[in-house]
Design a protein around this nucleic acid. Structure first.
Lengths: 153, 153
DNA sequence: TTGTTTGCAAACCTTTTGCACGTTA
DNA sequence: TAACGTGCAAAAGGTTTGCAAACAA
C-alpha cells in the first residue's frame, strides 16, 4: 500500500492542478503525509505527523488540514470513514479503484482492510431489488482480527 | 415499528431491572421516547422531544440522555449509527432481533431501513473466509431512495 | 440507609469559520 | 496583480464529566 504512495500522490496533484488549484505548501505536505499512511488516519493524527516532521519550522495549520481533506474528498481522492467513535478517518483512494471495506478489531483497535467480490455482488443485487439508486456504500465489521484470536484474553 | 414500541420498552425495563438498575424518572421517559421513534434519532433530538413533553415541569438533563443511551447500548437494547455527519443516532433493537441496515438518501436526507438475508449470508461467509470473529457489522448505502428518483432534479 | 440516578454547568474534543497575511500563476 | 492558499485564534456543536442534591430499593 505504501509502495503505491507516490502513484497516488502524483495522481492527486494532477487532479487538483487540472481543477485549477494552486500548489500551496500545506497541501503538498498533507498529500505526502496521506500517501505515506497504510490505512485510515484521523485529521489530528495527520496534523501531529506534520508537526513532527518540521520541528522548529512553521507548522501546518489545523484549518489547512481540514480544508485540504475536504478538497481531496470533493475530488474523490480520499475516502472518509466513520467508525462510530466520533472521529473521522481518511484514506487515499487508489487511482485504479481499490474498493475495500474494514474490520475494526475491538481488542487491539487495529483497522483491517478487506476485499470481497461476493459482498459487492450482494449489495448490487440488493440495490436493484429495493429500487435504490446507490452511489456508494460502506461496510464495517466489528470483532476480533485473526491475530487477536490466537492471543489469550 | 411504532406499534412494537411497548414491547421493546417493557423488554428494556426488564433487562435493566435484572441488571440491578433503579427506575429513575429520566430513564423511564427516555425509554418511552425511544420506543415512540420510527427510525434512528440523535441524542439532541431526544432531549428536545422530552423538553416538549414536560413543559414547565423539571426538564430531563442532557447528561441523563447521554448516560441512559450509553447504558442501553451496553445492554444491547439500542443501536448506535454513525452516518458521517458527526451526529450519533440511536434506535431500539427489537427483542426478537430485527436486524437491518440503512440507506441514507442524499436528496431528501431520509434514513430508510432495509433487510436482506442475502447480504447477511455474504457477510457470514466473508467472516469465515477471513478468519475474523465478527461480533457485529454495519452496512450503509448512500444514494437516492425510490421516491426521490421519481422527482425531477 | 446505601448506593443509584439526576440536573446543572463547565469542560472537552473534533471540526468549522473569520480574517489578515503570504503565495502562486 | 488577482485569485488562491495559509496560519492563527476563536467559535461552533456534539458529547462527557464533576458534583451536590434527589431518589429508589
Amino acid at each position: 500500500m505504501a509502495s503505491s504512495g507516490t502513484t497516488w500522490a502524483n495522481h492527486a496533484r494532477a487532479v487538483l492542478a487540472r481543477a485549477g488549484h494552486h500548489r500551496g505548501a500545506a497541501r503538498e505536505e498533507l498529500i505526502d503525509a496521506l500517501a505515506r499512511q497504510d490505512c485510515a488516519v484521523s485529521a489530528l493524527e495527520l496534523e501531529q505527523a506534520l508537526r513532527r516532521r518540521r520541528r522548529g519550522q512553521r507548522t501546518v495549520g489545523r484549518a489547512s488540514v481540514y480544508r485540504t481533506l475536504e478538497l481531496l474528498r470533493e475530488h474523490e481522492l480520499i475516502n472518509r470513514l466513520d467508525l462510530g467513535d466520533g472521529i473521522a478517518r481518511y484514506e487515499p483512494i487508489a487511482p485504479g479503484g481499490d474498493h475495500h471495506h474494514h474490520l475494526l478489531c475491538e481488542r487491539c483497535g487495529q483497522l483491517v482492510p478487506f476485499r470481497d467480490p461476493g459482498l459487492e455482488r450482494s449489495i448490487d443485487r440488493l440495490s436493484d431489488r429495493l429500487g435504490f439508486d446507490t452511489t456508494g456504500h460502506e461496510v464495517t465489521l466489528r470483532g476480533s482480527c485473526a491475530d487477536c484470536q490466537e492471543r489469550p484474553v
